Amino acid sequence: MSTPTAQLTAAGVSIWLDDLSRDRIRTGNLAELIESRNVSGVTTNPTIFAAALSKGEAYEEQVAALSARGASTDEAIFELTTDDVRAASDIFRGVYDATDGVDGRVSIEVSPDLAHDTAATVAEARKLAAAVDRPNALIKIPATKAGLPAITEVIGAGISVNVTLIFSLERYAAVIDAYLSGLEKAQAAGIDLAGIQSVASFFVSRVDTEVDKRLAEIGTEEAAALKGKAGIANARLAFELYQREFATDRAQALLAAGANVQRPLWASTGVKDPALPDTLYVTELVTAGTVNTMPEKTLEATFDHGVIRGDTITGAYAEAHQVFDDLAAAGVDIDDVTQVLEDEGVEKFVVSWRELQDTVKTALAGAAETTR
């Protein structure tokens, strides 16, 4: 019998796990998820690495070696995380080969401290790509204003990129432009465009969290009726924008030269409101050529009871536009919502980065104490 995750894959949605740890790698769990849950990629962030490093003994030996060598906290983070991403990339190499490089992807993020520094982001992206040294790695760069030219530079160097922290349609249009500009740069440098892949990570649940808070403050019946609708409407309109932008003469010329589209990726798909169905941001965002990166809880819920009804995006554009019109009429400023979310998103990743630094610093100190 076909499982919901198999049905989702058959509908053209790539399922990526939003989690990674050395335990998952060593126990065979990651390989098992490829077989049993149709997982075809992995995304990571500082929060995920902080959680992985704070529990279990999988990192103890390497931390001890790094401590003995006198590695700094940031040097240790770089080695620990790139080792995990390299190992995960090897596990997904079969998926990468079977999909001609479309899937089997593992993402690693540049330091959130660099989110507003273009040159430093480019340098870090190059360093990460060289250290992981796997064709199926994706370097995550946030879609901040400083991130946009960095995306162009990194794509232009032939490095595959996962653009993260996208909330607004306006910023998404700028991300697509940055990607196409990068492809043009790579083409001018004689780089094979077919080897460059990119995804654009559009955040979903956080939009509902912020909008629903504002709807509750407005307090009208009309506002209450819009609860839980903004995130999906925003993502559907993003896909409409994607279709339009990649149909332009500029994009089509690059595709004809061997380039790949930059696939939309639905991120932040764990449902935060217990009043909403736990598979909402999966079943309502199904269409071919997209990626859904899920925390394990959402992946398991989808596998257990997700109802895949085919394409739930391309026929729903009018409805999505209506939701946005209704939100504006109710007094919700979507531009302000998305700006607040971007600012919060960068700030949250910086906080997570500090937690990761603290975790590794403590581990290094503990290892040094043990060897005295």
Score class of each variant (00 low, 15 high):
Thr279Ser: 05
Gly12Trp: 08
Ala365Leu: 07
Pro274Ser: 04
Thr283Arg: 15
Ala365Asn: 11
Pro295Ser: 11
Gln7Asp: 15
Glu342Met: 15
Val175Trp: 10
Asp133Cys: 09
Leu138Gly: 07
Ser111Leu: 00
Gly228Tyr: 14
Thr269Val: 15
Leu265Val: 14
Val207Tyr: 10
Glu60Cys: 07
Val110Trp: 02
Ala367Gln: 06
Gln262Val: 08
Ile15Asp: 05
Thr209Glu: 08
Asn38Lys: 07
Thr82His: 14
Ser40Val: 06
Asp133His: 04
Val282His: 13
Glu109Gln: 06
Asp278Leu: 04
Gly231Trp: 07
Val346Leu: 15
Ala65Met: 09
Arg206His: 05
Thr290Glu: 14
Val175Tyr: 06
Glu170Ile: 13
Ala68Asp: 02
Glu184Trp: 12
Thr73Gln: 14
Ser198Gln: 06
Ala76Gly: 00
Ala267Lys: 05
Gly94Glu: 13
Arg244Asp: 15
Ile313Lys: 02
Ala115Gly: 03
Ala200Asn: 05
Leu215Trp: 00
Val63Lys: 00
Leu327Glu: 11
Ala87Thr: 07
His321Tyr: 12
Ala316Phe: 05
Asp212Glu: 03
Arg26Gly: 02
Gln243Cys: 14
Ile77Thr: 07
Ala267Phe: 01
Leu254Trp: 14
Thr118Cys: 09
Ala253Glu: 07
Thr283Gly: 01
Thr27Ile: 03
Ala10Gln: 10
Ile308Arg: 00
Asp100Pro: 07
Asp326Glu: 10
Glu109Trp: 04
Val291Ala: 00
Gly366Asp: 10
Arg250Lys: 13
Phe202Ser: 12
Thr82Tyr: 12
Ala186Leu: 01
Gly289Arg: 12
Leu66Val: 03
Leu241Val: 09
Glu124Arg: 12
Lys272Ile: 11
Ala330Asp: 12
Pro149Ser: 02
Ser21Met: 11
Arg214Trp: 04
Leu364Pro: 06
Ala288His: 10
Leu30Trp: 12
Pro4Val: 12
Gly158Glu: 04
Gly104Ser: 08
Phe324Trp: 13
Ala119Thr: 12
Ala64Asn: 03
Trp16Asn: 13
Lys272Met: 03
Glu210Met: 13
Val199Thr: 04
Ala52Tyr: 11
Val323His: 02
Phe92Ile: 04
Glu342Leu: 15
Asp273Tyr: 03
Asn292Met: 12
Thr290Phe: 15
Met294Trp: 06
Asp74Lys: 10
Ala88Tyr: 01
Gly158Pro: 04
Glu342Gln: 11
Gly104Val: 15
Ala235Leu: 08
Leu66Glu: 08
Pro112Ser: 00
Tyr172Cys: 05
Ile191Phe: 04
Thr82Asn: 12
Val204Cys: 15
Thr293Pro: 08
Asp177Leu: 03
Ile308Gln: 00
Asp358Ser: 14
Glu153Gly: 03
Thr314Pro: 10
Ala50Lys: 11
Ile218Met: 11
Ala65Leu: 12
Gly219Pro: 02
Gly56Leu: 00
Trp16Lys: 10
Ser268Phe: 08
Arg86His: 08
Val95Pro: 02
Asp18Glu: 05
Pro149Asp: 05
Thr283Pro: 10
Ala58Met: 14
Asp249Thr: 13
Gln322Glu: 09
Thr293Gln: 12
Asp212Gly: 04
Val85Arg: 03
